[in-house]
Simulated assay, not measured.
Amino acid sequence: MTLLITGASGFIGRHVCAQLTHHHDILAVLRQPDTQLPALRQQVNALGGQGERLRAVQGDLDLPGLGLPEDLAPPQAIIHLGARFAWELDRETAHRTNVAGSLAVAELARRHGSRLVFISGFMLENREHLQRLGITSDDPEQVDWQAVYRRAGGYEASKLEAAIRVRALAAASNLDLVEVQPATVAGHSHTGTLDTAQPLFALLDNLASGRLAMAPGSPQHWLPLVAVDHLAALIAVAATGDTVPQRLLALDPDTPNLQGLLAIAANTLGRRAPQRHLPIPVLAALLRLPGMPRLMNTWPEALHFIQPTRFDTASTDAFLAQQGLTRPAMEAVIAASARWYQQYRRDQPDLYPA
């Protein structure tokens, strides 16, 4: 089986490639294959994969038709991980990469008859949140997207719009679509390896740097997590399995509440865990003050992912059992992520002077 993947050089993508190259050839869509492919192969080998099974094709989510060659051989499945992530992302940029780019990937899958494994996000299963944003219809043409972008910010809004538009395209064309909906990504379940762009890294950094005197929200609020290696394994079987549910919620329901998460991390980091809570509306008001997001290393858009809502993972649980996949214990994953962060901090004396 030959698989095409976007976002292969990203944190999740590298782990997915390491999982899949044990048994499959991977064609990675890269902007600069000559320089990116050798580095990606090394990273995949370091993660236990077989980097020599990786090839590359030049392409870009921002280009019409992804900038791919016309004679591209049809892949059996396409994994779409590529996305543009940043807080305060402007709507035009977010839409071009995350919405138009996703639709171009979906059209490529439709044209070649490939399964599309589309990576969206867990908040698509939070109906109350979607309604607050103004998403009350499965028809993308019935949504006031301008209002959604204003309320959610460019990154989250574009990911929501992309998922809903790709679903509509799939329904209209009989596209074989599997949507994987990851929670916030934690580190590797054994090594704790964590990407510095991940929100969990910022949370650990704030805790270690003394910027978290209180836990955001209430005792009911939590930040759902998934270990990166477990997520990669789920994506791999979603791409290669015979019978796969249309949606897979990649979220550990046993993730502790936010205060519990911080307590585990604080114990590992040798810090004092927050004992009191700061209501989300109060924190959101503080973050509207000029300069406060940068000072607090917390962005208003990130607060949307800290929710009291719990999720039904029964369908995903059944699929995991069928595939013989088990979730690693999340408390151990949090501790491993904190240990990795601690070592990272020691290795960056210029960023973290004593």
Rank of each mutant, 00 (worst) to 15 (best):
L3Q: 12
L4T: 14
A8P: 09
A8L: 09
G10E: 02
F11A: 13
I12S: 08
I12D: 00
C17R: 09
C17I: 09
T21G: 01
L27T: 15
L27Y: 01
V29H: 01
V29W: 03
Q32T: 14
D34T: 09
T35R: 14
Q36D: 12
L37S: 00
L37C: 06
L37I: 08
R41P: 06
R41G: 09
V44F: 06
N45I: 02
R55Y: 01
A56N: 07
A56H: 04
Q58T: 07
L61W: 10
D62M: 06
D62I: 00
L68H: 05
A73K: 09
P74A: 07
P74S: 06
A86D: 15
L89R: 02
R91E: 15
A94E: 12
A94S: 12
R96D: 06
T97I: 13
N98Y: 08
A100E: 14
G101I: 06
G101Q: 05
V105R: 00
V117M: 07
F118L: 09
F118S: 07
S120N: 13
F122A: 15
M123L: 15
R127N: 12
T136H: 10
S137M: 02
E141N: 13
E141R: 12
D144S: 13
D144N: 15
G153P: 01
E156N: 14
L160C: 05
A170V: 05
A170D: 12
A171K: 14
S173F: 00
L177A: 13
V180P: 09
V180D: 02
Q181E: 14
P182K: 08
A183F: 00
A183V: 01
A186Y: 03
A186P: 13
G187Y: 00
G187D: 02
G187P: 10
H190G: 04
Q198E: 15
P199R: 02
P199C: 02
L204D: 06
D205Q: 15
D205L: 06
A215H: 02
G217Q: 05
P219T: 08
Q220C: 03
W222K: 05
D229S: 10
L231R: 07
A232Q: 01
L234Q: 10
I235Y: 08
A236H: 06
V237Y: 03
A239M: 08
A239V: 10
A239I: 11
D242S: 13
V244P: 12
V244L: 14
L248R: 05
L249G: 03
D252L: 04
T255Q: 09
G260R: 00
I264G: 02
I264L: 13
A266T: 07
L269N: 08
G270M: 12
G270A: 14
P279C: 11
P281R: 00
L283N: 04
L283G: 06
A284W: 06
A285C: 08
P290R: 11
G291V: 09
R294Q: 15
L295N: 12
M296E: 05
N297H: 14
W299A: 15
P300N: 11
P300C: 04
H304A: 15
H304Q: 15
I306L: 15
F311A: 04
T313W: 03
A314G: 05
F319C: 05
A321E: 14
A321R: 13
A321Q: 15
G324E: 11
L325M: 06
L325K: 02
R327E: 10
R327A: 14
I334K: 05
S337H: 04
A338G: 07
R339G: 02
Y344M: 03
R345A: 12
Q348G: 01
D350A: 15
D350K: 05
A354W: 10
